[in-house]
């Protein structure tokens, strides 16, 4: 089990209130009931705290529970037991709609398969999350989406349909989409899994750069040690249990 507060990076002490705690998991388990009434324990006693500006990676083999943990962090799922606080609010007592609104306003997802909406242009895909925003963000959605595409270097491809973009371009559009509502937490599930090494590296550089600029926490789930090593903090997930953290950045320093 990971130590609490281990995800705080250098220069961001966990005590003293300098960095806001975004997500706080304590002794979280996630269990599903199989068809033969047998319980499958996907996560076992996971404890993790993520603060603003953190950059951490969670590595593990396929089926070890990485995606389930990501779903919990992104409010797509709720724990079977243990506590999960999101911005200091217990998630267990929130309705699914309240979680959806909070998720939309604070979390940005980057998926392995990009998951862009088929048939839409790059601009429409990036503007999509702003359809669920209110006020100025909603009315200025195309302008904001264009700005974000510009930040990922795809302003000239704004009107290009999703299927006409290369894999690297699609992932950059996905990154722009994840960031367009200025999320506090970016969750990337195997963001380079469908890309070649060079493209994957440039995508990671972009993701890290944009996350750092916006001060968002970046959580990368990967089975690629090269991608994991880019994070300041690494966790290993084995058979549902989160392993001890390695403070790479501090070690490096």
């Amino acid at each position: 089990m990971a130590d609490r507060n281990t995800a705080t990076g250098p220069g961001q002490p966990d005590d003293g209130g300098a960095a806001q705690v975004l997500v706080d998991l304590h002794d979280v388990t996630r269990t599903v009931l199989l068809a033969d009434d047998e319980e499958l324990h996907i996560l076992r006693g996971v404890t993790l705290r993520i603060s603003a500006g953190d950059h951490l990676a969670i590595v593990g083999r396929s089926g070890c529970g990485k995606s389930t943990l990501l779903n919990l962090l992104g409010l797509l799922d709720v724990p079977t037991s243990g506590s999960l606080d999101f911005f200091g609010r217990p998630v267990g007592s929130m309705s699914s709609n309240a979680r959806a609104r909070l998720r939309g306003a604070t979390v940005g997802f980057v998926f392995q398969q990009f998951n862009l909406l088929p048939g839409r242009t790059a601009l429409e895909n990036v503007a999509m999350p702003l359809l669920y925003a209110k006020g100025r963000d909603f009315w200025r959605r195309n302008e904001l989406a264009m700005d974000m595409l510009d930040r990922v270097g795809l302003a000239s491809r704004a009107g290009t349909a999703q299927h006409m973009l290369s894999g690297g371009e699609q992932q950059r559009v996905a990154i722009a989409r994840a960031l367009v509502r200025r999320p506090r937490l970016i969750l990337a599930d195997e963001p380079t899994g469908a890309l070649d090494v060079a493209t994957g590296q440039s995508v990671m550089e972009l993701l890290e750069g944009v996350a750092e600029e916006s001060g968002a926490a970046l959580v990368t789930i990967t089975h690629d040690p090269n991608v994991a090593s880019r994070a300041r903090t690494q966790y290993a997930l084995q058979e549902g249990a989160l392993g001890p953290a390695v403070q790479l950045a501090q070690v490096g320093a």
Partner: peptide
Amino acid sequence: VREIGIRRSFGATSGR
């Protein structure tokens, strides 16, 4: 279905 899932992951409520 997938598209609906993507929209929900970006904040669309069930009502929306």
